[in-house]
Design a protein around this nucleic acid. Structure first.
Lengths: 145, 145
DNA sequence: TTAGAAATTACACCTGAGTCGAAGGTTGAA
DNA sequence: TTCAACCTTCGACTCAGGTGTAATTTCTAA
């Protein structure tokens, strides 16, 4: 074992699959050192880094966004209380934005219920500035006109 | 042409790519007939069916959900005003659910800002009943304990 | 009639967030 | 020393929602 947690230990402690932890490594979320045999060895702060990433994912952030957020933090070091506060405030703003977007959409839909026009030219639902699914890989072609 | 719109006509009228319309067909959203040469021929109601699908997508529904919704409606027929009202009310309910989910999440996060515990055992963010991304293919392994 | 536009199919490829399996190497306790 | 358990890499596969390409056929207007 010689200093550090194995990937299996980390998987057990975080509930993540071993494969997922390796995958997160490709995104720079954790950066384990290697022992003589080439096996990954993690520090205790990595548990917290992964916990952090898991929560951020639940909040709707992509792995790339999470990695960008974590890049500010020193590798091999757990996010401090101040770090967590700063990042979680940014997260809350993101959630609020999404709520507001959905509310605007719902209000527009309310205006349309019972209308049934579905006209490409006049329907208010056709040209919303904000599209729900900026996430994912939908049709990139925007509806023009 | 002999009766009906070509897939190109439909693409032009809806703003969708021809390839996307064919893809929607595999999901049962439109069901064109074929002419003697094997080309797809659409009716005018299909414009409305596609418009309907595009709006529903914006509202966050998957193609499968949309197809299920459309299955109630007669194929080759435009959704009537009553159909549209019924479906759009269901959609609004879906949006409201998602807003409520996000609000619960935000409230929990608010409770955690400044806490910084990130403890697997005690953090309220770890075991939320509702996960933001029920969509997509995230880690299927749930966090136990 | 004939050029060329538009249609057809089938298959490969893309992102994101992973999972799974094969084939082989390392570790650590008895 | 042995041997199971664990680890390594790499590539393929998943799912959604498509896009792009190739080879071929059909349609339409001059």
């Amino acid at each position: 074992m010689q200093g550090g947690l194995t990937i299996g230990d980390l998987a057990e402690r975080t509930g993540l699959a071993v494969s997922a932890i390796r995958f997160y490594e490709t995104h720079g979320i954790v950066q384990p050192v290697r022992n003589a045999g080439g096996h990954r060895r993690y520090g205790r702060p990595d548990i917290r880094r992964l916990s952090f990433a898991m929560i951020a994912q639940k909040l709707g952030f992509s792995l790339s966004e999470i990695a960008a957020e974590m890049a500010d933090l020193p590798a091999h070091q757990a996010p401090s209380k101040a770090d967590w506060t700063r990042v979680s405030e940014r997260m809350r703003d993101g959630i609020n934005d999404r709520i507001a977007q959905l509310e605007r959409l719902r209000d527009r839909l309310d205006g349309c219920i019972g209308c049934g026009c579905l006209s490409l030219d006049t329907c208010a639902l056709y040209n919303p500035d904000d599209t729900l699914a900026g996430e994912g890989s939908g049709p990139r072609k925007l509806i023009r006109d």
